[in-house]
């Protein structure tokens, strides 16, 4: 137990996911992620990479296997999943901002309701976070009055407001217009520089090459291959080659 406290903050072992309709989405997926590590997961659509990411905060339950987040078992019935989720921030492809709240309202809501922080404190922290993602001018705008890139940056600030130990990114730039991808990736890069543990599902190969400590390739619900970016992109694994040939 003690020997992994400094190392693996996420331990996923032999994850199986079979949907009630028989679809076998994850097959014996195991992955350990260290504190402060940035892991990028790539793979064709339908490969199970988003499903795997969503099992890490139990938005998706698993059929078999074990997941430990910071030594807390997610499969243990006694675990309070809401407590775990406070530690694991998530950013979605479709932003999922709360449309009835302003940018600041989105960021401050959870600290107020879940962590029971006084409104003034939560809003002060929220303002600082929004400043950090470059949205100081936009705090009182409703999501419908923000561009996609701005919305996604608010979503990142909203997840950070809970002071998570881990950030999960589920294709954060896939729903964005090309000119807005950069601003979101920049925020993610600075987050990585600050030492955040990040798991990123993305199609941005440039980001993987530049920021990732490790790149994971998934296909057909299996974890096919994991390597450091340098070795990953120069690998001659045939399945990886086929995929990279299609996307690059």
């Amino acid at each position: 137990m003690t020997n992994r406290t400094d190392k693996s903050i996420i331990q996923a072992r032999n994850i199986e996911k079979i949907y009630p309709n028989g679809c076998h989405a994850l097959k014996k997926v195991s992955l350990d992620i260290n504190r402060g590590e940035v892991v990028v997961i790539i793979g064709p659509s339908g490969s199970g990479k988003s499903t795997f990411l969503r099992t890490l905060n139990q938005l998706e339950t698993i059929s078999d296997g074990t997941i430990h987040i910071d030594e807390v078992s997610l499969t243990d019935r006694k675990t309070n999943i809401n407590k775990v989720r406070e530690e694991v921030g998530m950013v979605f492809q479709s932003f999922n901002l709360f449309p009835h709240k302003t940018a600041l309202g989105n960021v401050a809501l959870s600290p107020i309701k879940v962590k029971k922080k006084p409104r003034a404190v939560a809003e002060q922290e929220g303002r600082e976070l929004l400043k950090k993602v470059g949205l100081a001018e936009r705090m009182n705008n409703y999501p419908s009055h923000l561009s996609g890139g701005q919305q996604q940056r608010v979503a990142i600030a909203r997840a950070l407001a809970m002071h998570p130990k881990i950030m999960l990114f589920d294709e954060p730039t896939s729903a964005l217009d090309p000119e807005m991808v950069g601003e979101v990736l920049d925020v993610m890069k600075s987050l990585a520089r600050d030492g955040m543990t990040m798991v990123v599902v993305t199609h941005e190969m440039g980001f993987a090459r530049e920021v990732a400590d490790r790149v994971v390739f998934m296909e057909d619900g299996e974890l096919v291959f994991e390597e450091s970016p340098e070795r990953f992109f120069s690998s001659d694994n045939p399945r990886l080659q086929r995929f990279l040939g299609q996307v690059l």
Binding site: N57, N82, K83, R85, E86, F98, A159, M162
Partner: peptide, 12 residues
């Protein structure tokens, strides 16, 4: 997605 986002932030 709204429910997922809220739950992912630790709300019950």
């Amino acid at each position: 997605g709204q429910m997922e986002a809220a739950r992912s932030l630790g709300m019950n």
